[in-house]
Nucleic acid binder design. Sequence first.
DNA 1: TTGAAAGCGCTACCAT
DNA 2: ATGGTAGCGCTTTCAA
Lengths: 330, 330
Amino acid sequence: MSKRLNISKSTISIVLNGHGDEKRVSKDTQETIIKFAEENNYRANQLARGLSRGKSDMIGLVIPNISDSFYARIARRIETKARLSGYNVIFSSTGESKERESELIESMLDRQVDGLIIASTQQNEEDILRLKKSNFPFVLIDRRYPDIETNFVGVDNVGGVAMAVEQLVKMGRKRIGFITLKPGLEAIHERLVGYQQTMKKFELEVKDGFVHELNYETFDEQMPAVFEIMLNSSNDIDGIVFATHFLTASGLREMKRRKVLVPNEVAIVSFGQMSAFDLVDPPITSIAQPVEDLGGRAVDILLENLKDGITAYKQEMLDSSIEVRKSCGA
Amino acid sequence: MSKRLNISKSTISIVLNGHGDEKRVSKDTQETIIKFAEENNYRANQLARGLSRGKSDMIGLVIPNISDSFYARIARRIETKARLSGYNVIFSSTGESKERESELIESMLDRQVDGLIIASTQQNEEDILRLKKSNFPFVLIDRRYPDIETNFVGVDNVGGVAMAVEQLVKMGRKRIGFITLKPGLEAIHERLVGYQQTMKKFELEVKDGFVHELNYETFDEQMPAVFEIMLNSSNDIDGIVFATHFLTASGLREMKRRKVLVPNEVAIVSFGQMSAFDLVDPPITSIAQPVEDLGGRAVDILLENLKDGITAYKQEMLDSSIEVRKSCGA
DNA sequence: TTGAAAGCGCTACCAT
DNA sequence: ATGGTAGCGCTTTCAA
């Protein structure tokens, strides 16, 4: 292009990057360049541009699993917002593996992403710490490291589960169980705390058989045993809060198998939504997390950091809302 | 690194790219380099590497919407498989906008992706044609351009809908309606054909009020009117096939509102799944598309093209299966 | 067996 | 107002 126009590539670069006026390139030259670029469908090589400028205009998204609707919705919002500011997003799923997470973060850094948004396995202190120490811009979402101060956007898990328990209490339930995952994630821990606090607040007993912490990989197989215990005469559960949308689905399947009447015999509330929960038999009361906002805020914070540097860490806890449907006894 | 080791960067590059033996670099030097790299946590700048090699090891994924579980599942598989071959994926959602699709494709090309996987709006002949003419490696998924020969992986829409209709026929239904989207997508057209052919095969009449083609954006609002017509005395529908999972959900909501008994009064089958369809009241019979395979085959084909060049275009139609549940009258 | 040098396509600084 | 030049960090060819 430079040759065929007899204009130096410096000038061309300036004009094409929109600094023509500012750098006092003559109107004439500017026009010539822009016209030629359009006609020849000229497009800058972003690899070269990135290498030269020391920034790639890409942000990396590291999540457990893009096919989980929770993360997919977040990804959608992140992507849309990022593009408005000229960024593309490159994503990868860790499958909840610490090793993979570590590899993926490395790989994204190799690609010179300008920033990262990470829903961590939360077993990867080293990388997070390293990112922090090197002052690399990143935002943690949904999963936080309690001992590391970083940017973070999550939901109010304690408050969300509190709403769930309260709803069951309002419906007159007293022997309320909690089906959750094995600890390891702060968010999961907080949900347990939310359950315990609220039970205490209403002076309800939490028996041994009330709380079940299942494996992330095998919860489906564990479900029958869980209900065996929850429904036995000594526990005689009349309400259950599920800590995630997929636990709800799994639990409900088991309850159908056992022909447990929901909500008459056992009322349930799900922390987290699924798209057809309103069509389920019975329609599921659920705590709706502000998923899109979560993604949106994460990008906002990241972009601020990219623009102004990392001045202070922001931590935001977004509030959930409850969608009351029949399953809770309403 | 070159300086501190007193080894030229050429040699270093050779060793770090695993060509040490092949290029007869002494064991000693190789060891020194590798050791140093590991200790100092050296990682190559992929922007520079890409610029130099003329390839980025990135593939671009352009889809309508990452938060649609159909595409999210595809994306997951693509990502996983691509990584096994050393590729990262950068994705973007078009929101079914032709303009955005065009921009996104451009943007990915600017980023020097090595190949593209596209679920097109199917209104973007120019770009697809341009890609094809420039011999750029790409694979179309789910949505094809009938007039352009390209790589393509999709599902057998005709056969899938045929299964759906047949199932209803088996259950004794005769006045079977079809709720679908406005034409524009080949896949949607094929589903209609599948419906019509199968109705004909069983010598069932297709009345005017049997087929409804809704807008992609406003199907929810149109649904009441649709059922008004379908359920009136002259049509008196006793079975419905929905052309997509979200139409099913929307239709079912309307039927619940009207207290239509499913399947007694109207039996239904969904083309396409949703995660909780087995928990819905009644459980939904659905045609399960081999979504993961679709993504997998797309990557396979793309990687072949990347490796061997584009020799011939592959078109693959994957078979669906039916998951029979109560909603069809079973 | 190793190194020097050119070049990938761009940006940005310094001259003119 | 415009151009020359030096990189950005890597790969690759050619010499030594």
